[in-house]
Amino acid sequence: MLGYTITQWLFGILSFLSIMFALMVVFSRNPVNSVLYLVLTFFCIAGHYLLLNAQFLAVVHIVVYAGAIMVLFLFIIMLMNLNEDTEPQRTWITKIIAGIAGGMLLFVLVGSLKGTEQLGLASYGSSQIGLVKNLGKVLFSEFLFPFEIASVLLLAALVGAIMIGKKEIK
């Protein structure tokens, strides 16, 4: 098809969709719509992970982000009863300035990326490192200590969230 492989078509479509949904997150006025568009963006990014042969990360990404984190966001929005009428808006001048600043940042990044084309990065065929088996071996041998520390971090976050969320500390 027009000289492109199926992978390249998939990459193009997924990139277009993820950028569109990310833009809708920023531009939609209703916070609930923003959350739903962010979920769609995360699904597109999970598709990118699948294209990169990172199956384990794709599944974890959907479970953690779309399944846990976004539900938490939706729950908080429901509790605060946020909708289009209560949504605070910045003035147009601030939005335009933000857009200009972002555009200049993009200009600088793309300009610096132009120089990386001559890096001569090593390229390999379809890699198998993203599979659960190979990733698990690395995670539980080389990165065992950081993995255990991550559990302490999650415990600390759990206790911290409960302490902050309590009505008053006696």
């Binding site: 950028i19 990310a22 833009l23 997150v25 920023v26 933000a98 972002g102 990326l113």
Partner: peptide, 13 residues
């Protein structure tokens, strides 16, 4: 880069 900048613009706007 584009996704990062969309996020950054969202934080500002």
């Amino acid at each position: 880069a584009v996704l990062f900048i969309i996020g950054a613009v969202g934080v500002m706007a």
